[in-house]
Design a protein around this nucleic acid. Structure first.
Lengths: 176, 176
DNA sequence: CCAATTTTAAAGTAGTTATTTTAAAACAGT
DNA sequence: ACTGTTTTAAAATAACTACTTTAAAATTGG
């Protein structure tokens, strides 16, 4: 998975994955079918074990506190992962280079995030924690938009190992 | 340039470029040396003729009005370009797959943007247009961070062809 | 018009790619 | 211990990669 994460789908050869995992080439093809199946497996694992858990906070706390904690985690953690960026979002920038099925897998996850955030923000509005006159869906889009920025920004700017300075600005934008 | 833009460096073969440009293979190698030279040429052209001009507004108007216009252009125009995303920023997500020289070319441009925005914001503070207690450099980072978000977000979300709804939130964050 | 230079098309090279095949090795159940 | 199955290593394949060479065609300058 590391190779896909760091170098992208096209720049990662099946041999790279074989070397990295220690799997046997033939049994790998029997298990996953082809390179694309292998990549989709990596996406699934990443979603289930690496990035998915980060969003659990939004499920456990579907309110402003959950959004704040989540955002703080994303903004401070973006540059601290083993590899830079996000296996999924890195591939948003090379959508045409991966299979439609894999692309759909990535986008479905983005949609799920957006929906999680939207629910939390809707509750935050009921709680009177954020501006009630704004569209929760639009605010959720804005949060995901910022997550995208964090991913790409955190990946490229090696001088900054945390971008939490933006936290107040984003939270502030939700409130008025 | 289109192939590099749409598919990324690795997923673009020299044959693709030859087909796209109509250039002769041999004369292309004589002119640009190798694939990397070709890519750097594309980066240079993109910077000079495609994306560079978009930042001219910041040079002509190094103040809040310039930043506002620039942001508006970026946020409304991100999803309207011929190809999605930005030739340069798309490659920030695959930094390891391009040459160090090309990566440096991309990062130098990012640094230049950041510096342009910083100058404009510093002037905006002198003009009393934005919060004077904030660090102009940090605010400039935030703007570039948002531009990254716009690039990646605009590339992946096909349902939204403009993300200008975020404009008010970003500008608002500068002011208080 | 002719010689010199540049451009072009096309074939060729050497390496890598994803994927398959072959056949030996390991393992399983009885 | 033997049989059937799975796993493994290694070689083979066919397509593609970046890149080079060859030699013909076009273009230039005097």
């Amino acid at each position: 998975m590391g190779a896909f994460w760091q170098n992208g789908y096209v720049a990662t050869s099946v041999s790279d994955v074989v070397r990295e995992t220690g799997l046997n080439t033939a049994s790998m093809y029997k298990e996953f079918g082809d390179k694309d199946g292998l990549f989709r497996e990596a996406l699934g694992y990443y979603r289930g074990h690496v990035i998915g858990p980060r969003y659990q906070i939004l499920r456990d706390n579907p309110n402003l506190a959950g959004v704040e904690t989540f955002l703080k985690n994303v903004l401070t953690g973006a540059a601290k992962t083993e590899y830079k960026g996000c296996l999924m979002m890195n591939h948003l920038a090379q959508k045409h280079a991966i299979s439609p099925e894999a692309a759909e897998q990535v986008e479905a996850f983005c949609a799920e995030i957006e929906s999680l955030v939207e629910t939390a923000l809707r509750n935050a509005q009921s709680d009177g924690d954020i501006a009630p006159d704004k569209d929760a869906k639009e605010l959720a889009s804005f949060i995901v938009f910022c997550v995208h920025g964090a991913v790409l920004y955190g990946r490229h700017d090696s001088k900054k190992d945390e971008i939490s300075v933006f936290y107040d600005m984003i939270i502030g934008a939700l409130k008025h």
